[in-house]
Design a protein around this nucleic acid. Structure first.
Length: 515
DNA sequence: AAGCTTGCTTGACATGTCTA
DNA sequence: TAGACATGTCAAGCAAGCTT
């Protein structure tokens, strides 16, 4: 028997209960503490033994699940968790799962038979809610179900005619009297609200009627499907890194933030590997869609485009992104929302300025980063009063170096950049601006496709190959399009990333992701 | 802060298959 | 043909991570 940590048991086999040692008993006591509390103290040891015995037999059964169902792989890989969770009840029957392996109640009956116990305790994995320090995946909560031994015997010796009295068959009992894990419906008020609507790529008409542009959707799908995405070899990228980028990366620790699934895969989890492979398969075609909010008056707002493979890449993966095996650049709109607001509402204003810079606020200790961090909440608040209350609630005043009134900040912002008045405390306007941004990007996409440039889209940026001609073409398209829309040339950033992180330097193999 | 995504899990319900 | 149950599908909930 090996116990690596609280959650992983590699292999566990007991011929009889005498083989249970202190370690396993301690483990069960710790893991099942919640359950054991409910049991009166003089029966606790007995229950521990029962739990261990049943689990061991179940594991033994699981070891014989054919590899194509995943059972044996997981067993060998040490991914089995000691938790048995009933997952799906069917018409009468019950399906259970252990470490992601589903098995039927028949397996359970066999285990019961071997255990020769009068009671079978099956552990129901629940959740600790609202407890961020104890993620539900790690610390389970327990309830038990009890299977009556005599009912089991009647079932197993086949002499029991369940047909003539089906209401008292074992499975019926399971689903009525015995199972305390009665399925519950998600209460109506806790269900997800239907305000978000995703549609195939759609366009707005003047009167805010949404029309679906199926032709464009099909074009975009075909186009993006032809793009081959891969991640560069880290050694290649790090060889021509800049020290500035190196510093930025090591400071931000972004390299440590990897997708859980990928991280798990790197750690040798075969389940993750399989999931990634399955996902790759499901990825085609990209589920391109545009997300709208349905307003109370029946009109739509919002309208960003989602579903590009670049959406699901983490920051560090984006740094390594290659299109058709070539390095990429990211062309994004500088301070996107404020800039669009500026172009739309203040024709005299310079849209190449730094929208988050307010030198006059520096005396309060309010810097660019702070303005950036409050911008979203400022726009989305229903009223300035509410925003101020919220700021106080989150104790943001700690950030200030000298005493300062929140309304002073807002006055200062509006005085310096008057067009901010239009978007502060105006969520509808903010959504409208995002729609504007999204429509602009879609218009650009159409032209980029005409130029036959391979691209990915992500919020306010295009990712294209690091090629001078292509960059110039895309810049030209964006400039022309913005001039057509707002009468001004849009201000963009071109980012090239160079990655470096000690953890990854030793990786020799390219991480290829064929979406 | 808020809005989106993701993976993962569970719950509810639907469908398929075997057997008596 | 109905019971038993294996298998399939969809959606909700949650934590975490990204963007602006």
């Amino acid at each position: 028997m090996y116990i690596y940590d609280d959650r992983k048991i590699c292999y566990c086999h007991f011929n009889n209960i005498e083989q249970v040692d202190e370690l396993l008993l301690g483990f069960v006591k710790k893991q099942f503490a919640g359950y054991l509390k409910k049991v009166s103290s003089r029966y606790q040891d007995k229950h521990c033994a029962a739990i261990i015995f049943v689990l061991c037999n179940l594991w033994e059964e699981l070891a014989h699940i054919p590899a194509e169902y995943g059972g044996y792989d997981f067993w060998e890989e040490g991914e089995l968790s000691p938790f048995i969770a009933p997952t799906r009840t069917t018409q009468g029957g019950c399906t259970f799962s252990c470490a992601g392996v589903a098995f039927s109640s028949a397996v359970l009956w066999k285990a019961l038979e071997k255990s020769a116990l009068s009671n079978l305790y099956v552990i129901h994995r629940g959740r600790f809610q609202n407890n961020k320090r104890s993620p539900s995946r790690i610390i389970p909560r327990w309830t038990s179900i009890k299977v009556l031994k005599d009912e089991y015997e009647r079932y197993s010796n086949k002499s029991y005619n369940y047909k003539s009295s089906s209401s008292s068959s074992l499975t019926k009992i399971l689903s009525t009297e015995l199972i305390e894990i009665k399925q519950r419906r998600v209460p109506e008020d806790r269900r997800r609200k239907g305000t978000l609507i995703s549609l195939p790529i759609a366009e707005f008409l003047d009167n805010d009627v949404v029309t679906s542009s199926a032709a464009f959707l099909e074009q975009l799908r075909t186009y993006t499907r032809s793009i081959s995405i891969s991640l560069a070899k880290l050694s290649d990228v790090t060889s021509n890194r800049s020290s500035e980028a190196e510093l930025e990366f090591s400071n931000s620790e972004m390299g440590k933030k990897v997708a859980p699934c990928f991280h798990s895969f790197v750690m040798g989890n075969e389940i993750s590997k399989r999931n990634i492979e399955l996902r790759k398969f499901e990825r085609q075609p990209f589920p391109l869609k545009r997300v709208f909010h349905l307003q109370e008056n029946g009109s739509f707002s919002w309208g960003r485009l989602y579903g590009f493979p670049s959406d699901s890449l983490t920051r560090w993966q984006k740094l390594l992104l290659q299109i058709d095996g070539k390095p990429t650049v990211q062309i994004d709109i500088k301070s996107c929302i404020p800039q669009i607001a500026c172009m739309k509402f203040s024709l005299d204003e310079d849209n190449t300025q730094d929208f988050y810079s307010f030198p006059s606020l520096m005396k309060y200790g309010i810097d660019r980063d702070y303005i950036k961090s409050i911008f979203m909440s400022l726009c989305n608040s229903k009223s300035i009063k509410k925003w101020i209350a919220n700021q106080k609630f989150y104790n943001r005043e700690n950030k200030f170096l000298s005493p300062c009134n929140y309304s002073d900040i807002i006055n200062e912002i509006i005085t310096n950049k008057p067009f901010f008045k239009n978007i502060i405390a105006n969520p509808e306007m903010y959504k409208m601006l995002i729609k504007e941004e999204s429509d602009f990007m879609i218009s650009c996409m159409k032209s980029i496709m005409d130029y036959n440039i391979k691209f990915l889209y992500n919020y306010d940026c295009f990712i294209i190959q690091d090629d001078e001609d292509q960059i110039n073409s895309v810049l030209e398209i964006m400039r022309n399009q913005s001039f057509y829309k707002w009468g001004k040339y849009i201000n963009v950033d071109i980012d090239r990333y160079f990655l470096t992180h000690e953890d990854y330097i030793n990786d020799d193999e390219a991480l290829v992701m064929n979406f």
